[in-house]
Design a protein around this nucleic acid. Structure first.
Length: 140
DNA sequence: GCCAACGTTGGC
DNA sequence: GCCAACGTTGGC
């Protein structure tokens, strides 16, 4: 199983809205970046991801699960753009802020720390465990 | 609100 | 195929 990180501005699509979708999940649509799309194409059902609020909050707030493989993005007719569906699993007990990630030397290689512009990014298994620890949350 | 970094577009 | 111009993202 692989791990990922999904970024969204809370004003556009928030964790609360994701939770409200329940187990049905929702398309992670609107991505118009090849690297982010390629990451979504590589995802498998059951992969886990962090849900990150960019801009105002700048913190990882929850854990999501991939529940549909990459398929055409319903918000465009442009066949280049695809997206997966994700569903909320549970919130982190303690949100993990960007500042916390930057402050932890074990996370210095994290994409979130080094390439803040990429909206769908891979997370290593080690990084996953560290952030769950910082978030006081079971990594399963 | 500003601006640096990055990705994309389009003229040549 | 290069690269300048432009638009967008996101940290500060």
């Amino acid at each position: 199983m692989a791990y990922w990180l999904f970024k969204s501005e809370a004003e556009v699509w928030s964790w609360d809205q994701q939770v409200a979708k329940g187990d049905a999940g929702e398309e992670w649509n609107g991505v118009r970046n090849y690297q982010a799309r390629n990451n979504m194409r590589a995802m498998q059902i059951g992969d886990r991801g962090f849900f990150y609020h960019s801009r105002a909050e700048k913190e990882i707030v929850g854990i999501v699960e991939v529940c549909a493989l990459a398929h055409p993005d319903s918000t465009t007719d442009d066949e280049r753009w695809e997206c997966v569906d994700i569903k909320a699993v549970r919130p982190l007990k303690t949100p993990v802020t960007l500042a916390m990630c930057k402050a932890d030397p074990r996370l210095s290689e994290m994409v979130l720390v080094n390439n803040s512009r990429l909206s769908v990014q891979p997370v290593s298994e080690a990084e996953w465990a560290i952030i769950c620890e910082l978030g006081d949350t079971d990594p399963e």
